[in-house]
Design a binder for these strands. Structure first.
Length: 221
DNA sequence: AATAAAGACAACCGCAGTTCG
DNA sequence: CCGAACTGCGGTTGTCTTTAT
């Protein structure tokens, strides 16, 4: 008789989170199937990725959207429609899931208002698709104080050393052996400019063949 | 104080695109 | 070139929290 190990579903526990963070550190943020298998987490690779992207990834903001972010979402949705991941790339620290959820809530509210007689430009935003079109007002982490969670603390501890936490909430990324900063004028990422050498390996992850990249948004190799 | 409604957030599912042997 | 496996995205649903009555 072959025992098939059951895949866990539902909310993640703190232990699972910590384990996932640890194995992403070891294997990188690409090989989700391998992470799922090697880590012993009884989760699918898909589930691991989702958890990482939407919750554990460093530099994520929590809490309500700022008015600037709201405006940007409205604007970008008018241009691109439901291209959530694309929109999310313009809002550092926000995930596509978060934006999607925000938009749905907003849509519902607006639809109700509309039913009551008020109209809003929000609903008129059809899925116009204008790839390549640039917007001029990028947001760079302007948002304010997200509460510090236990996981933030974990990140502070496991993040590569010699950098303050705030460093990783800026548009930086780590590739190879250098820390890169995403240029403010970077139109559709990829125009990252190298800035500082990065001390590798991180001492908290000694022997780590695949250092963690910080952060993950707006980076292309 | 209890409860219903609304809002916010987290997670799963299915499909399409990409990668790799 | 082809097929299998993997990854990423968007849609949807479930659950928890907050607010109003």
């Amino acid at each position: 008789m072959v025992m098939v190990e059951e895949t866990r579903k539902g909310p993640w526990t703190e232990q699972e989170d910590l384990r996932l963070v640890c194995f992403v550190g070891l294997l990188g943020d690409r090989r989700w199937d391998a992470i799922a298998k090697v880590s012993g987490l009884r989760r699918s690779g898909k589930s691991c990725r989702l958890r990482w992207v939407n919750y554990l990834r460093p530099g994520l903001k929590r809490g309500r959207m700022t008015p600037q972010e709201e405006r940007l979402i409205v604007d970008l949705h008018a241009r691109w429609g439901n291209r959530w991941s694309r929109i999310a790339k313009r809002l550092p620290g926000r995930t596509d899931n978060e934006i999607k959820n925000y938009w749905r809530t907003r849509m519902r509210k607006t639809a109700q208002e509309k039913g009551a007689g008020t109209s809003s430009p929000i609903l008129s935003s059809s899925s116009s698709d204008n790839p390549g079109e640039e917007d001029s007002h990028e947001l760079h982490g302007g948002g304010g104080g997200a509460p510090v969670t236990p996981l933030d603390q974990t990140w502070n501890e496991t993040a590569p050393l010699g950098r303050s936490e705030s460093t990783f909430k800026e548009p930086w990324c780590y590739s190879g052996d250098s820390l890169w900063k995403i240029d403010d004028d970077d139109s559709d990422f990829g125009l990252a400019v190298p800035t500082v050498d990065f001390p590798a390996p991180a001492t908290t992850m000694e022997g780590n063949p695949n250092p963690i990249r910080f952060p993950l948004w707006g980076y292309s190799s």
